[in-house]
Simulated assay, not measured.
Amino acid sequence: MAETKFLETAQGRRLAYHKSEGTGPTIVFLGGLKSDMEGTKAVHLEAWARARGQSFLRFDYSGHGESSGEFTDGCIGDWHEDTLAAVSRLTAGPLIIVGSSMGGWQALLLARVMPERMAGMVTIAAAPDFTEDGYWASFSDQQKSDLETVGHVELPSDYMEPYVITKRMIEDGRQRLVLRTPLKLPFPVRFLQGTADTAVSTETAVGLLNHASGQDMQLLLVKDADHRFSDGPCLGLIEQAVRDVIGGT
């Protein structure tokens, strides 16, 4: 396996990454909250891209995986800065962005600030604005009070240890919302969503589809697929979606 490389960002963070050289457009995988670049989808897609001779990048946000920092110190804006640094300094030319869960939000933020480089996008259980519409909207009065007095709350997860959600993450998330203003995606887009996903609802996926504007946009609902979306059939669907937005076979 290739050795992990590291990128120093302008903010002083050290990001771990793997880059496979090849032809363009470069596929960039953006992982989910508390996920890392060694996840099934990222590694599988890298191998698939390498077999095609296609350029591919996966990396860990700060506070994730092998990158520097603590998860509880980070927020959506920090990870957006990490994404910008990785894409700007490690890739050139057109991009195919594949964003999973929180990475779907990051993909939409990237498209907003770097539209000229977007050749296509695939999201898997995209979770735009989840800090506001998911966390904050569901907090009890006690949790909102704890956020002010303690500075964080802990939320259970179906997939790992509890999430520690900080006041900074909630407040920063409000500055990064993408569903309150026009969301233009003028390139091929494929949204993938499992109906058995307990972290991101099908209503969220449909809401994103209805809110965004674009000439070539599709939502695929996969019956009984969960949030991981990483069994064999689901990985095949991700491959097909990437092929679709590239426009090849």
Rank of each mutant, 00 (worst) to 15 (best):
residue 152 H to T: 10
residue 171 E to G: 00
residue 132 E to R: 05
residue 175 Q to R: 09
residue 113 V to Y: 12
residue 168 R to S: 09
residue 137 A to H: 12
residue 142 Q to K: 09
residue 176 R to K: 04
residue 86 A to K: 01
residue 109 L to D: 05
residue 146 D to F: 02
residue 150 V to F: 01
residue 159 Y to H: 10
residue 131 T to S: 04
residue 125 A to R: 03
residue 169 M to C: 06
residue 113 V to W: 05
residue 90 L to D: 09
residue 104 G to A: 10
residue 161 E to Y: 12
residue 127 A to N: 03
residue 149 T to W: 01
residue 162 P to K: 06
residue 113 V to R: 12
residue 119 A to L: 06
residue 152 H to S: 14
residue 88 S to F: 04
residue 133 D to M: 10
residue 150 V to R: 15
residue 106 Q to W: 06
residue 144 K to E: 01
residue 168 R to N: 13
residue 140 S to K: 10
residue 141 D to P: 02
residue 163 Y to M: 12
residue 143 Q to Y: 01
residue 113 V to S: 12
residue 88 S to E: 14
residue 104 G to F: 09
residue 104 G to M: 09
residue 122 V to Q: 01
residue 160 M to Y: 15
residue 96 I to P: 00
residue 115 P to Q: 12
residue 160 M to T: 15
residue 135 Y to D: 03
residue 137 A to F: 07
residue 136 W to Q: 09
residue 122 V to G: 02
residue 131 T to P: 00
residue 85 A to C: 07
residue 99 G to F: 10
residue 128 P to V: 05
residue 103 G to C: 06
residue 116 E to S: 14
residue 134 G to N: 07
residue 164 V to Q: 11
residue 157 S to P: 12
residue 128 P to E: 01
residue 103 G to F: 00
residue 145 S to Q: 13
residue 149 T to D: 08
residue 96 I to E: 02
residue 91 T to N: 05
residue 174 R to G: 11
residue 155 L to M: 14
residue 131 T to N: 01
residue 134 G to M: 03
residue 97 I to Q: 04
residue 148 E to P: 07
residue 172 D to T: 13
residue 138 S to R: 14
residue 153 V to G: 06
residue 108 L to P: 03
residue 156 P to W: 11
residue 96 I to D: 00
residue 127 A to S: 06
residue 116 E to I: 10
residue 162 P to N: 15
residue 148 E to I: 14
residue 173 G to W: 02
residue 132 E to M: 04
residue 157 S to L: 14
residue 176 R to L: 02
residue 138 S to D: 11
residue 167 K to P: 11
residue 87 V to M: 11
residue 130 F to R: 01
residue 96 I to A: 06
residue 123 T to V: 09
residue 123 T to L: 06
residue 126 A to W: 02
residue 171 E to I: 06
residue 138 S to W: 05
residue 112 R to H: 07
residue 94 P to G: 08
residue 128 P to D: 01
residue 142 Q to I: 10
residue 107 A to E: 02
residue 140 S to N: 10
residue 111 A to N: 13
residue 142 Q to G: 00
residue 110 L to F: 15
residue 176 R to P: 01
residue 99 G to L: 07
residue 97 I to F: 04
residue 153 V to N: 07
residue 150 V to Y: 06
residue 99 G to Q: 07
residue 171 E to N: 04
residue 104 G to E: 10
residue 102 M to A: 09
residue 128 P to L: 03
residue 157 S to F: 15
residue 163 Y to W: 15
residue 166 T to M: 08
residue 147 L to E: 04
residue 119 A to Q: 13
residue 173 G to Y: 00
residue 145 S to Y: 09
